[in-house]
Structures are given as structure tokens and as C-alpha cells.
Design a protein around this nucleic acid. Sequence first.
DNA 1: TTGAAAGCGCTAACAA
DNA 2: TTGTTAGCGCTTTCAA
Lengths: 340, 340
Amino acid sequence: MRRVTISDVAERAGVSKSTVSHVINATRFVNHDTRQRVLEAINTLGYRPSTIARSMVSQHTRTVGLLISDVGNPFYSEVILGVDDVALANGYSVFLGNTSYDLERGMRLLISLVDRLVDGLLLMSSSLTVEMLQEAARHNIPTVVLDWGTPGVELSAVTITIDFESGIDQAVHHLVELGHRRIAHVSGPLDLWTARLRRDAFLTALPRHGLDPAEALIIPGDLRIEGGQKAIPQLLAARPRPTAVLAANDLTALGLLWAARAAGLNLPQELSVIGVDDIALASKVTPALTTISLPRYEIGRLAMETLLKLLREPATAPARHQVATRLVVRASTAAPSEGV
Amino acid sequence: MRRVTISDVAERAGVSKSTVSHVINATRFVNHDTRQRVLEAINTLGYRPSTIARSMVSQHTRTVGLLISDVGNPFYSEVILGVDDVALANGYSVFLGNTSYDLERGMRLLISLVDRLVDGLLLMSSSLTVEMLQEAARHNIPTVVLDWGTPGVELSAVTITIDFESGIDQAVHHLVELGHRRIAHVSGPLDLWTARLRRDAFLTALPRHGLDPAEALIIPGDLRIEGGQKAIPQLLAARPRPTAVLAANDLTALGLLWAARAAGLNLPQELSVIGVDDIALASKVTPALTTISLPRYEIGRLAMETLLKLLREPATAPARHQVATRLVVRASTAAPSEGV
DNA sequence: TTGAAAGCGCTAACAA
DNA sequence: TTGTTAGCGCTTTCAA
């Protein structure tokens, strides 16, 4: 049972291979009748052009590589969906690689992608190195980098960053309007670019709403539930005690909520909590979490579309895109109760 | 800046292309000195063999296609990780496709994978059809199907199914030992194979522990938090009222827990709840969820390894694998309080 | 309006 | 111990 090739079709239709090729790709005029014969031959034979052979001559594969630090992270999984949708709609297939936050693994993955002649690269991994970018550039593979801010990135790749400032500013505004004056922040690990970004956005938002950043309590967390839970004792011990807290992400916020309740606090009156991410769970818990929503699917879509544009117009200069975030008010924020 | 090819290396080393090929693939003896010269040429030129050209002649690609219904589902994301690990370790790359529970989309994805000459297929999508399997079989692409029980599957593909019976039997045993006699089940949508499987496992486990399946209350759910929440009123209205409930998955169990607490029940004394999945959250909530743990990563690993074996020994007859599940006891189960 | 033939970068007979 | 050569299945000049 041999694979049916273009020659089989040509023979069956009584034409040359080139004619078959041209009817398939609509790349030059073919007489109506012969075209019909070719089409028919294709159908009865069940012929499908070999992508490999095509790539061999065209030197491109209509594939892209997607490197992710952690597929299990709900943030990324929706991003993947956005990428996948755009890819499918444009005839691209995507190679997925999970770096597991492991630099060496990431590099191996990247090399295998380069060897596979991917047309473009989508890098969404906090464990990225400049060498990876260079490797991609060396083979001049168009690259889109998500949410990675190392200086110099924008020289060789298009970057997509998340504009936390907008959402965080809304969050602070919301709290101040409710009457809060003492707002704390439970940050992520500050060696992470994205964690610093959120903290800084918080710190710069404060003075815009009449609050003094110097007085703001910053408790380091780990972007996980545990980090939020561990922050509660510190939070309650602080004098003056904060009446609201902005968590670096929703998991941290949930940890805060649960530990606060366990400590006997009346929520949200005695402690308002805001998260970042808007994970699925955020609207399901009690009290439902007020949070800053990231357009995850949108990010994936934008990334793949940007890459596609890069592929079509290789001359385009590396640019930077930002996606906005916005506050979703639910039940975990309220006016502070008197005399706390 | 042309791509450097095997001819460049050959020329530089002063040998023929075939010699270069043979040192790269260690496929025939090459004199030590010439081998050194070749190696050196490869290094200085930075030569990397083209996977495409190789595939062209070998007719295989060292790629596999992975079709998933929903990358966002935490169950699948860990499976992906297992697949990815084994793939990377064996020099395979994986194409990821998200069917979004959409049959037509799934078929399009599948066809694109077939056209790309993937060596094997991993189908982990509840939205699968027999035609998809046939399409794969028609191109004789070895296929591994996860958790899909339609009769006839095992004829053309290796199946990996999850042995819910073991874990569910342990769960019922655990509850009976605690003193429960009236155990309810909140199922998934019963048009899903996997939901029926769990319900049936529950029903057959009961008599093994002296309980009458005919008396068991089965409430249909949706595998989501909402389904669990909606089940609580029915559960509380039933006479005699169940003292324990086995949920079809952890999300349902969380819904049950939260709605029960909202209804003023004292947990776990007044209602014991067991989930299925052991999602990350299960151990974080209060009370921590007793649940039946699925070895998700293990499943991915097994699937990819099975596929690899199939690729190496194509003669192997389609088989079926089962992976065991086991009960993890936490704080959401307890002896029933008296006189409920 | 169509065909012949070269070539994409490799592997593997077959020869030497 | 190594080289020559014929493909793998397509696309694309160039020619007719």
C-alpha cells in the first residue's frame, strides 16, 4: 500500500506533474477540462500532497514552535488556546514544548524546534535566556516573546507585555473610593520580572490616589495559595493594620481570604482582598474574588497574529505590544469597618 | 546567508556527502582521521542536518500529534507534561491540537496532522469519532486512545483507560468503615463514557460492601462546581438523607462542600464528601478534600511510551492498558454524626 | 495551454 | 575504507 504521489495523479489524469501541481496551487491557468480530470484523479485516488516534500522545496514548514514554562498553569493554557485557534485558521500547526522552568531543557527544546525548521517561535517562558533569543536570531526565525522584560529583548524579537498598570491603578482607585487608606501588597518572588512589574505598578499607583508609597506594607509571597496564607499573620500584626490588600495573583488572594477567615476575620468588612488573573475559580469562591482580569485568550491570539504578520512581512521592525488589564469587582472588597 | 548543507561540510572536509552522512549517523565505519576532519568541518560551519530532508527520504518525521479536547482542563495539562517529557527524551516533537470538544475541528486538526506525516497519534479527546480512528488507520498511523470506550476502538488503536473501579471501591470501603450506610453519587453528564464508567463503578462497589445499589441516590451533575452546588438541595431533601456523597470529580465535590456549608451543615460530620481527580486545589481547601487520585502525569508518560513501542514494533497487536486509581484520605470525610 | 527537467538536502544501494 | 548515484515528492524555471 504505497503512498499516492503527485505522479500517480498525473499518470491517471494523463497530464504532467507540473500541471497537477498547478491545479492544486492555482498557480497558473489550466484548461477547464484538464483541470477537471486532475481534480477527479485526485479524488478517486485520495491524493494528499506531502507537506514534507513541499517544505523541502519551499524551505518553510507552516509550523511554529510554542515554548511554555508550565502547561499546567491555567494562565498559559488559555493562551495556548488562543494561539491554537489562530494557527489552525491559518493552516499552521504548533509544536508545543514545556520547559518546566528549566533553562537547559528550554534550550534543547528550542534547538529541536530550530532543526525542525519552524517558521516562527512563540516564547512564553519565564525561564528564557538571551542565548535562546540569539539562537533564534542566528537562524533568523521570527520570534514573539511574551511577558519577558530583560533589556535588549526588543532588539531581536517582538514583545508582548501585559499592562498591569492600568488594572492595578483601577484596583487602587476602587479601594480608595471605598474608603481604604492603608493598602498592603503581597508580591510574587521579586526575582521574577513580572512580579517586580506588579509591585512597581502598585507603588506608583498609590500617590496618584493620594497615598504614600513609603508607608505601604509589602509582604513577599510565592504566587501560590501558601504565600497568601503565610502573609496573614504579618498583615494582622502590622500597625496601623491595613484594611485592604492587593495580591500578586488570585491564588495568593485565595490564600489570604481563607487564612483571614480561619483567623476569625469578618470578610470583606474587616479585610478587602483583590487578586490578579481572574482564574476560573475566582468567581466561584465565597466571597467571590474582586480581581484584575488578564485577557489570556486574547494574548494568545495576539501573539500568534503578530507572529503571522512577522512571517508575511519579514522586514517589519521589532515592536512591542501591550495588552490592557481591567478590574472586575466582586464580593471580596467593601468599605472598611469602623475602628479596626 | 544560505543554509549550510551536508555538501558544504563534505567539501570543507574533502570527503563525499555519504561519508559525512555516515559519520553523523554512525551507520558505517569511518577512518578515525577522516571522521575527525568531518566533525571539525561540522563544528566550524555550524552545520545542523535538515530534519525535513531526512524525513523526505526516511518517510518518518519523529513527530507525534496530540489531540486534546481542552488544554485548559487541569487534568489534561499534566498529561501533556508526561507526554512531553517522554517525547523530548526520545527525540520526538509533539504537535498539539485543541479540539475544544468540537467534532469538525477535531477532524480538521487530525487531517492536518496526517498530512504532516506524524509518526503516531495520541488521541485524548472526548469528542472523537470512529471516522477519526479510521482516518488514522487508513494511513496506518499508530494510535493511542485515552479514556474513550466506544466499542470497537481497541480494534484499530491501543487504548489506555483509567481504572476507576479500584479507587471508587476504596472510597466506598472507607465510607462504610466510617459507619456510613446511605451514600449518594453526583455523576457527570451520563452521555459521557467516562461519567457512566464512574457511576457504574460506584453502583457495583456498593453491594461488595453490603449496600443496596437500588437504594442509592444518583444526582446528575456537570463535572463543574455548579453541578455540585445545585445538588445540595436535592441531597438534603432526600429521605432517608444520605450521610456521604461521592462526587464524579473534585470540582463537583468543591461545589458540594461550599453549598453544604452555606446551608449551615457542619462539615464533615453532617456530610462526608469524596471527589475524584485530586486536583491541586483539593489539598488546599478547608476541609481538605478526600479524593480519588488519578496518576495524570503517569498517564501521559504511559501513553507516549506505549506509542513509542508501537512505532518500534508495528506488528504489535492493539492492546488495552489500565492505570490504577487510589483513595487519598483527607479531612472531608468523617464518621456520620448521630441521628441525622 | 502544457511538459521536461533541475533541484530542495538528505540516505543508502552499489561500486570501487 | 570511501565515493557515485539514484531517488524521496514536490515546485518552478525554461521551453515548446
